[in-house]
Simulated scan of single mutants.
Amino acid sequence: MTVLTNVFVGLHIIGIASLLGGFLTQMKAMGAGTARFVPAMLHGALTMLVTGVLLVGFREMGDGAPLNHVKIGVKLAVLFVILALVYVKRDEEHVEKGLFAAVGGLTVANIFIAVLWH
């Protein structure tokens, strides 16, 4: 089970890298007002959602170690907002600066929630 959990942790990290990487590649375009949500951002967010839910399930089925459900709920809520924004605006040629920046900020916030909240 440990190997499987580690594989999904790796996939979860790849998902966040895809979401954040897609945002970072569009930052110059955001300054010009021509940024758009690239497919990597949507796929990264979906990867995070699926792997995150599976990781919580693995942890619940495992050794009974306590899980911070409030933290998981906050991270899930933030990810749902990110996913909704990226999904709804994915086909638009240009996304407003504020909306695009919000997705980047929420992505970074989700990373810091994961790392700093114990």
Rank of each mutant, 00 (worst) to 15 (best):
M61H: 08
V115P: 14
T47K: 02
L49D: 09
I72M: 09
L20V: 07
M1K: 15
W117M: 01
F58R: 03
L76W: 04
Q26H: 11
A29W: 08
I13M: 13
V103D: 11
A17E: 05
H43P: 06
L79T: 07
L99W: 12
G64L: 06
H69F: 10
V86I: 14
G33V: 05
L54E: 02
Q26K: 00
L116W: 11
V103M: 07
I113E: 09
K28Y: 13
V86T: 09
V78F: 03
L99T: 15
K97F: 15
A32Q: 13
V95M: 11
A17K: 02
L106N: 07
L55M: 06
V38M: 10
T107M: 10
M48T: 07
T25K: 10
R90E: 12
R36Q: 14
T25L: 12
L19A: 14
K75H: 06
K89D: 15
V50W: 09
H94R: 15
M41G: 01
I82E: 07
F37E: 10
E93M: 06
F58S: 06
L24Q: 04
V95D: 07
H118E: 15
E93H: 15
G64Y: 12
H43W: 15
V50H: 14
D63A: 10
V74K: 00
G21V: 13
I82V: 13
V56K: 01
V74C: 04
G21P: 12
G15H: 03
H12A: 08
V78R: 07
A114Y: 11
A84W: 15
F100P: 03
L19Q: 12
A65T: 04
A101S: 04
A40G: 00
